[in-house]
Design a protein around this nucleic acid. Structure first.
Length: 277
DNA sequence: AGCCAGGCTGACG
DNA sequence: CGTCAGCATGGC
């Protein structure tokens, strides 16, 4: 068991429950979950939080996971002349875009298609329970996310039993390609456009899902996923028209290198009901 | 009891 | 190239 302090400047609840991570759950006055082979509990503490974990990770691992090496205040300041983005950053103070395990992120967002947050969590939990490794922490059990090989071996039928529905074949096919040797870990190093073109060759991954993977799992902070909420924001608040791809292109031009972070602020505040839609 | 959910695929024009 | 019906499942 190791532990470290997380600063009050982080809003852990916002980070873990804003549609980017799906494998944490409330626990006592904090949260419990697993990242890679680390089981973790986060408790409220004076002037921040106490993160306790069992597993091979170190402090740098968690600092990267919570994107603590990025200056969000400085990024927010760059959009100080943009009314709605400025407001979104202020109402989402402490929300960071997480850097999550790539394979798990791929699966989560394949599952997310035409689905809702609650059910994505339900399915991800079932996948962990049935195929992941159990990790004990403080008498609680959490589960690592299973490898692509393990999911490929389980097959589409098994995945369907877990409630994935018509996405079972997508997951099985994608898991199979990766188990056969496709190296996801190259994606963060080949540039945004190339990585996007690679991702959309997988079944169940279209442009929106790919952009979520690029943003939450590959560190491409310019990736701008356009879902129904963000589409509505850009239409109503910025007068954009056209299909989602056009809205994405115009948004990326408008917001630039940190568009994905802007997107997460707009998405989260829109879902909280904090935007005049 | 329908409707909807951080869309994608395959078919068709 | 763009459009569009159909899609499994569970929560509300």
């Amino acid at each position: 068991m190791r532990d470290m302090h997380l600063p009050k400047s982080l809003d852990i609840e916002a980070c873990l429950f804003s549609g980017q991570a799906f494998r944490w759950r409330p626990y006592e006055d904090g949260f419990i979950g697993a990242v890679e082979n680390n089981g973790a509990i986060i408790k409220n503490a004076e002037n921040g939080y106490l993160l306790q974990w069992e597993g091979p990770g170190d402090e740098a691992f968690w600092q990267h996971y919570f994107d603590m090496n990025r200056d969000y205040e400085e990024i927010a300041a760059r959009y100080g002349d943009n009314f709605h983005v400025k407001n979104a950053f202020e109402s989402c103070k402490g929300l960071h875009v997480l850097n999550q395990p790539l394979w798990e992120t791929v699966c989560a967002f394949i599952i997310s298609a035409n689905n809702n947050d609650k059910r994505i969590r339900l399915i991800m939990q079932r996948i962990g329970e049935s195929m992941g490794d159990a990790i004990e922490i403080w008498g609680e059990t959490v589960y690592s996310f299973p490898s692509a090989k393990k999911m490929a071996d389980a097959g589409a039928e098994k995945l369907r039993e877990l409630g994935t529905g018509y996405r079972a074949e997508y997951l099985a096919d994608t898991a199979g390609r990766i188990a056969q040797g496709y190296d996801l870990s190259l994606l963060p190093h080949m540039g945004y456009e190339k990585a996007l073109s690679e991702l959309i060759t997988f079944k169940g991954i279209g442009e929106k899902v790919a952009d979520c993977v690029l943003l939450f799992g590959c560190g491409y902070s310019q990736a701008f996923p356009v879902d129904v909420w963000v589409e509505r924001v850009m239409q109503r608040l910025y007068g954009m028209e056209g299909n989602r791809r056009q809205i994405k292109q115009r948004s990326m031009e408008l917001f630039g290198d940190h568009g994905g972070i802007v997107q997460q602020m707009l998405f989260h505040s829109a879902r909280k009901g904090g935007l005049p839609l």
